[in-house]
Design a protein around this nucleic acid. Structure first.
Ligand SMILES: [Mn+2]
Ligand SMILES: [Mn+2]
Ligand SMILES: [Mn+2]
Ligand SMILES: [Mn+2]
Lengths: 217, 217
DNA sequence: CTATAAAGTTAGATTAGTCTAACAAATTTT
DNA sequence: AAAATTTGTTAGACTAATCTAACTTTATAG
């Protein structure tokens, strides 16, 4: 399995999480390649039994493909955790580096990271780390946008951890584990006013609140 | 620059250290590829101005090529040091892992390792780490085999750090920094008897003694 | 100084991953 | 239902890295 195919498989896996059916054009967009490229790639992924594909039909990951993808994601997330915990990188820096490291073939390296980290369950963005069999145990959190006024919650994960969001949260001093209380909800734009370890109350847009996954506390 | 070309360049660099002239067949042997493969590769390395090459003539690294190679070796050795110091890998394990990691393109990662390690000058086998400009400052040590009886020395580096040698040294409890005194030299097979932090004296073959680079202490 | 052997080259093929251009099928809009 | 748009396919080309087979040049050994 090549570096390239691993990235396709991961992309398909992530698309699979959000939609049931995966179109070639979506995959092409995500991978930033032309349609003929994606077309020939899915044929070759099919030959390895990682996807099911028929002309003009949407793409589907096989169980085998899902597992393969999960194992790459395991490497990715373990790496992110290691970069954050052991090397002092910020949560907004780790993804880019892990994107390369995830393709290393030497298992020893990832096993040692796992051990040093004490077998972590989640990455620095709160996403679950698949186990060595490729099984993912994901907790079901609720978007902050759906919490009622007066309730106290803890930030546990993010829907999409784009660098921009992470830098925004840094500026607001919001991190995983931050506990906050909903002070007020503005019906007009659905923005919310929250209070946490800062002196002043902070306003969060609906857009942001939708991306923050929380649990009650 | 691809992963593959980086490995060729490194191989040429290492051959260059030992011999003046580098033949394609040697390079082919080192890289475990056929002669036509090595032939077409050197042509392509030449186009990038990393080597000088003319039909039927031995290969030569350009200054540019030497620098490129040194920067890859910098990544390799920094990685080895990090694996040993921060992740608890043995000196016999690090090379194989570093062989993969050295190709990562993300400079941030290597810079952070360098910083965390306190800008080390040598790798876990005592080989010098080239600086960010690709300049190598190599100390000139002496093989243990050339030291006279009665002299006290410190092991500082190895001529060739094969896994087999490293495991042998582990068994003998010899590491970088080990200080030893030559007790006796056997003229017949040039083996030497040494004493160090062990209760008993230890016999080292000429073969081994040639590979251990020492300085007086 | 010829005859082998070793080293190096060329030609041609293969696989992986990519592209553009041209066309076809499916979907959406009018 | 026809037209327009989007989506997907095919054909053909390119680069990188590799191989085998056949040949040539250079080196070595009688
Ligand atoms: Mn990530
Ligand atoms: Mn990747
Ligand atoms: Mn090494
Ligand atoms: Mn390598």
């Amino acid at each position: 399995m090549t570096h390239t195919k691993e990235n396709y498989l991961k992309a398909i896996y992530h698309l699979d999480q959000n939609q049931e059916k995966i179109s070639l054009s979506e995959l092409g967009k995500k991978m930033e390649v032309s349609m003929p490229t994606v077309n020939s790639m899915v044929k070759s992924l099919q030959e390895k039994d990682w996807v099911i594909y028929q002309k003009y039909q949407p793409l589907q990951l096989t169980t085998k493909g899902k597992q393969k993808a999960a194992l790459i994601i395991r490497k990715h997330r373990l790496t992110e955790m290691f970069l954050a915990q052991y090397m002092g990188f910020g949560w907004e820096e780790v993804h880019e580096i892990a994107e390369e490291i995830e393709h290393l073939q030497v298992d020893k390296f990832f096993d040692r990271m796992d051990e040093l980290l004490g077998y972590p369950a989640v990455d620095p963005h709160g996403s679950p780390i698949p186990d060595k069999e490729g099984v993912v145990v994901a907790k079901s959190y609720v978007p902050l946008s759906e919490i009622e006024v007066g309730v106290q919650v803890r930030i546990c994960s993010l829907v999409k951890s784009s660098k921009e969001l992470l830098l925004y949260l840094n500026r607001k001093e919001i991190a995983l584990g931050t506990e906050l209380k909903i002070e007020k909800k503005e019906p007009f734009d659905k923005s919310i006013l929250v209070r946490y370890q800062r002196p002043d109350k902070v306003m969060l847009s609906h857009e942001v609140a939708q991306l923050l996954l929380v649990e009650l506390c």
